[in-house]
Design a protein around this nucleic acid. Sequence first.
DNA 1: GTCTATATACGGATAGAC
DNA 2: GTCTATCCGTATATAGAC
Lengths: 190, 190
Amino acid sequence: MNARTNTREKILNTAAFLFQKNGYHATGLNEIIKESGTPKGSLYYHFPNGKEELVAATIKLMGDKIQHQIKEELAKNSDPVLAFKEFILDLAQNFNEKDQENCFSIGLLALETVPINESLRKTCIEVYDLWTDAYYQKLVSSGFSSEKARELSLILQLIIEGAITISLIRNDTTMLVAAAEKIPVLLENK
Amino acid sequence: MNARTNTREKILNTAAFLFQKNGYHATGLNEIIKESGTPKGSLYYHFPNGKEELVAATIKLMGDKIQHQIKEELAKNSDPVLAFKEFILDLAQNFNEKDQENCFSIGLLALETVPINESLRKTCIEVYDLWTDAYYQKLVSSGFSSEKARELSLILQLIIEGAITISLIRNDTTMLVAAAEKIPVLLENK
DNA sequence: GTCTATATACGGATAGAC
DNA sequence: GTCTATCCGTATATAGAC
C-alpha cells in the first residue's frame, strides 16, 4: 500500500464517518482535513472536484461495505424469517456501540443530496438497489417466488429504513426491535 | 389579524416550506427573508434566537398541521384497514402535486438536527409522538386492544416514515403504494 | 415594530512553492 | 504527490436609525 492510497483512504474513511454522522452540509472540508490529519491540497489532489466528488465516493464506499455486511449477516441463518429477524436485531445491537461501524444508513445523506445534485441522487438510488438486491437474493434462495421476493424486498427495505431513521431520532432501538418482531407476519406467504 | 401576526406568519410559512424541502443547513436566513419579502430585522424581532428558534417553531407548526391532516384523513373510513390504506395512497397522490402542501415528513429536518441540538431533537420526537398517537386512537376506536394498538401504531409510523423517505429519494411513489398494500396483512389480528 | 448597513466568521476552492 | 497561504462568497447575527 503506497502513500497515495494511504492518504486517499484516510480522507475517505474520515469523510464517511463525518458525513454519515452529521450530514453533508454540516460537515466542512476543514473538519475532514483536520480530523484525518491530511492537508487541504491532498484532498483536492485526490478529489479534484471537491466536496461533491468526495461525498459521491463515500456514498459508494458505504454502500458496498454495508451490502457486504448484509449478505454476511443474512447468510448466518438458512431460514429467511430467522435470518431477517436476526439481521435487524443485529442492527439494534450495533446501534448501541457508537463507533465508526454503525453506519447502516445513508438516509440523511440521501435526503440532503436529493435537492442539490441529480447525479448524487442517482448514486444513492444505486446503493439502495444494491441492498434491496441482497434481500431479494436471500428470499429467492429461500424458496420465494421471484415476484413475491421482489415485492417483499421492497417492504423490507422501507421497514429497515424507517426503523433506523426513527431509532436515530429517538436515540433508542425500540423501533428496530418492533420491526424485527413483525418479520414473521410479513414473510408468512411464500 | 394585525401586522405583527401577519409578518410572523409569513416568515414561518416560508421557513416551513424551505426547511422541509431543502433541509436545515441548506436553507439560509437570507433565502427565507428574500422569499417571504420580510427584512432581516423583523425575523430577529419575532425570533430573537435566530435560526434555531425559527426551525423549532416551524417543526411544531408542521407537526400540528400534519397531525390534523392525519386525523381528518383517517376519519373518512370507519374500517381501519381501508382508512390507513387510503391514507397512504393519499400521501402518494399528494406526492405528485409539488406544492407547499406535500410536507408530510420532517425526516430530513429531524435527522439533521439530531447531532446539533438536543432540544430540537426533543421537539421532533414530540411531533412523531403526536402522529403515532393519531394512529393509536384510530386503532383503539376501531376495536383494537390498547396493547395491540400501541404496537401497531409504531409499525405504521415506521412504515410510513420509510416509505416517504425512499419515495423522496427515488422521486416516485412505488414504495408508498407497496406500503399501502401491506396494510391488510399488518392489521389482520385485532 | 420595521428596516438597512454592517460585523465577523467560516465555507469551498485555488495558486503555487516544494 | 504534498503542503501552506490566500481568495472570495456567503452564512448568521447585530447595531442602530426610523
